[in-house]
Design a protein around this nucleic acid. Sequence first.
RNA 1: GCCCCUAUAGUUUAAUGGAUAGAACAGGAGACUUCUAAGCUCUUGGUGGGGGUUCGAUUCCCUCUGGGGGCACCA
Length: 563
Amino acid sequence: MQDTIRQIVTQALQQAGIEPVAFVIEHPADLAHGDYACNAALVAAKKSGSNPRVLAEELSRYIETVQTPQVASVEVAGPGFLNFYLSRDFFKEKIAQIPHMGDRWGSNETLAGKTYLVEYTDPNPFKEFHIGHLFTNSVGESISRLIAFSGAHTKRLCYQGDVGLHVAHALYGMQQLGFDANSSFTAKDLGKAYALGASAYKEDPQAQQDIRALNKKIYDRSDESINALYDRGREVSLDYFESIYRMLGTQFDAYFFESKTGPAGKEVVLAHPKIFTQSDGAWVFNAERYGLHTRVFINAEGLPTYEAKELALAKLKADRLGDYDHSIIVTANEVSSYFQVIQKAMHFVYPDLAEKTEHIGHGMVRLQSGKMSSRTGDVIAALDFIREIADAAHARIAEASPHLADDDILPQQIALAAIKYSTLKGSILQDSVFDAKQALSFEGASGPYLQYTHARIRSLLEKANSVGIVPSAEHVPAEPYTVEKLLYRFPQVVLQAMQLRAPHKVSQYITDLAGAFNTFYAQEKIANPEDEYAPYKALVSQAVAQTLKNGLYLLGIESPNKM
RNA sequence: GCCCCUAUAGUUUAAUGGAUAGAACAGGAGACUUCUAAGCUCUUGGUGGGGGUUCGAUUCCCUCUGGGGGCACCA
């Protein structure tokens, strides 16, 4: 459709004797400005120094002579926009297609034949899985789904730090708490042990020495009892993470561990003595000449740092997953400046991989009290957080829909919707302040609001069916409903969200759509067998439900049929 | 101190240099009492300060102020 309009405008420019210009055709945010708006006259007038309004009038005269079944009319508005209005038939035909396309409605083939890797979540074993990981997971999952929905073969990856000083902190804490490989401890205990070890490291010089020694033993696996404790702790931690991934609806295709990237990272750095240089006994990459920071890749003790490991990880991904076209890594933006250095170094070491690597540094989750820190144990565990909101959802269900009070997955579905929506409702690049009160609210622009609208349509369609209404586009009212004017835009929203890595384009759009539908619902009786338009209203409702479901899917949110 | 990001209504936020800065929550008013009220309608209220570029700036540039992140052997 956009191409058709582009063609019409291009021809009009030609007939008006104007040189081709780069113009934009977009959906105006305000429906009063038509279905498509074009700024060609503004651009062309700027170039020639003429009056954009006059030029637009001239173009519209040419455009009016072109007859197409989809375009109903064109008008000049504002400073010189050309606003196109689409025909009744266009909307009717579009809406009729949506239920047939089902779960594929809105998808595109832009990335067909390509393989994309998306790495996200990346929790560290032995540490708590907190709401920051929840944030990264929501972002990464949504981006993965947007990319897959654009036709790419998408592989989800998770990189977990199973070695390093943080593990030594945890093991030290476990020893202090009296745990051994045979004691039964939980992931929660590990979190406590970590906090204990971390503060001891900071405050007690002796503990610091012990922890450093422990760290070395973990690396070289020289102590049987420590190996056993480590192995058990790692297993407990990873099992715990796995249960969280299941709950969140993320299924990873491959896992990578720092215990594997470490040796490879050291090797690759030492293999490039011209790119990395020695400084104070450490191997560093001097990135200052590129306007970045110099960073240590192998420390003075000969151990590879995060930077070296990240370098090796890129290679490891290629080795294990075969040839890929693009690799996305989603993390919080606190590591963004390291990433620039790593990517610069990668540019020399693995130029082809560096080309294909993209880092997305999303905003940080902040508590009202300030930065969340797992070092001091000042974190909100993801599971506690989800549980708290699920409890609130359960209370709401018991009150509003008592017949569903025994449904044991619904509260969690609603809780996750609330969390994921609040994560993805705005730009992922901005920091977000964690507001418990807002997270517990299921009203207004929220995940549960969208789920509710979807569930209500499902039940409405059941009702319509029971009174013999079969959705169809046979009889349509003269004027399209507002929801119709929004529905056909969905594929374009999805494409834009994927290209901009901006899931909030989707959340914003389906929120608008739900709002428009709720207005429609309040104004029109749908399951009314007497109404000649009832089958069409049912069809429109069906299309809205499908669009909400697909949109929610792209945000990683489930769409229960009843709530 | 240096580098990067950032500042929109009381709060959470949207807006490839374009149309009357768009929503949600909170606040105020209301309708229906008919398909799920987690809903609907109306309403109060906003671009941190100062310059500049432009026909046009929330958007680009400079500066001041506030917030956040980072600044080599943690990840």
